[in-house]
Design a protein around this nucleic acid. Structure first.
Lengths: 200, 200
DNA sequence: TGGGTCATGTAACCTGTTACATGATTAG
DNA sequence: CTAATCATGTAACAGGTTACATGACCCA
């Protein structure tokens, strides 16, 4: 996955490992993270596979750099990947792994947990995003066919975050109700209550 | 993550590696997958860490089994994890990685791609789910405080899938519009058109 | 003078995937 | 008779994380 992601970035113009790192950090971070160590390792493997070629560029006042360019074989591989590698729909979600076992803790702490999740959800300011990666936006103006998919991934992130926020609100409501029920039970003896959800 | 997930499962009752595998396969698969090879490896590490203890149980007519039980130290670790390990909100999404570079292909193939994504989204039938893991549902009846979180994770899956389906529909609409625009440009010379999205 | 940016990586480790191996019982 | 279920793993590889190391230049 990362290997092909890097290949896709280089296909939009030659890049150094450092530049690739900044694109992941500033633009793709909402769906993928990558450490420099991993990027440099993948670049070496890609060169061995013949997908990219490397040029050493001496610089003055800055460290020298290694610029990577895509080869014809790399272009073939990029298209093969996009065509043939299938659709990955299920991926591990560590947030749900934790949520699944939250019943081990008291209800009050469960409410705190879901509230922290909700508060941590802040979708990026579009103005900031634009300035963070100005050259991507420049390219987009010249190439609407690529820009449309970049917009799609941003939109996906926006919707995902909205969905999660709504989910948090419903969870908090249900947990508050359960808490109220438990408080009642602690005061009186035994009691029954209707168990109906908030869910549509 | 997986290590603590396994610990959580064992905390709800002693289990063999095989049983843990079936729970991941039948119930947790919507947010986490795990291979048997990985489960057995983690169990050995957990025993070395003192989180679980292992008992060899000879059987007749079936292979012998190793049953794992949680230790007091394991219970402490489970609660520590749930309390202190922070909230993981960003995780790599391979679907978006592919979508981001789909502009390398012709618009028609982009439409096919998004349609395949949409068609591959099928949320599990709740009736089937219930029968797949009958003992979990039995436990849920006796323990509503745990059951509520299990319901939350299922609900998250349902909402996530609905969100993705809507996203696909919007993408298809926009791509069809772009395709129409390109067809027009191919017929006549140059032309302008308003670039406004479907997005709210 | 101290922190940020540009620019490169290595080493060790942890986590996840794929492929292989065994072997009895049971249900169709 | 054949496929699935129960039940255990190992080995090799691929992918991701953490920590460390270097060094000049520029801005406050």
């Amino acid at each position: 996955m990362l290997r092909h992601g890097i290949l896709g970035l280089i296909s939009n113009g030659d890049k150094t490992g450092y530049e690739i790192m900044t694109v992941f950090r500033d633009s793709l971070r909402y769906f993928w993270t990558a450490q420099t160590s991993q990027i440099y390792r993948e670049l070496q493997k890609m060169e061995k596979a013949g997908w990219v070629s490397q040029t050493h560029v001496p610089q003055v006042g800055k460290p020298d750099k290694n610029v990577f360019s895509i080869t014809p074989a790399g272009r073939d591989e990029l298209l093969r990947w996009l065509r043939d590698d299938g659709i990955p729909l299920r991926f591990n979600n560590p947030l749900m792994m934790i949520a699944f076992f939250m019943g081990e803790r008291p209800v009050e702490e469960g409410i705190d947990f879901v509230q922290s999740v909700r508060d941590a959800l802040v979708f990026p300011d579009e103005g900031k995003e634009a300035s963070a990666n100005a050259d991507m936006y420049q390219q987009a103006l010249r190439n609407p066919e690529k820009a449309i998919y970049w917009k799609f991934t941003i939109e996906y992130g926006r919707r995902f975050e909205a969905m999660q926020r709504e989910w948090c609100e419903c969870c908090i409501n249900e947990l508050e109700r359960l808490k109220g029920l438990k408080d009642l039970q602690r005061q009186s003896g035994a009691s029954e209550a209707s168990e109906k959800g908030d869910w549509p």
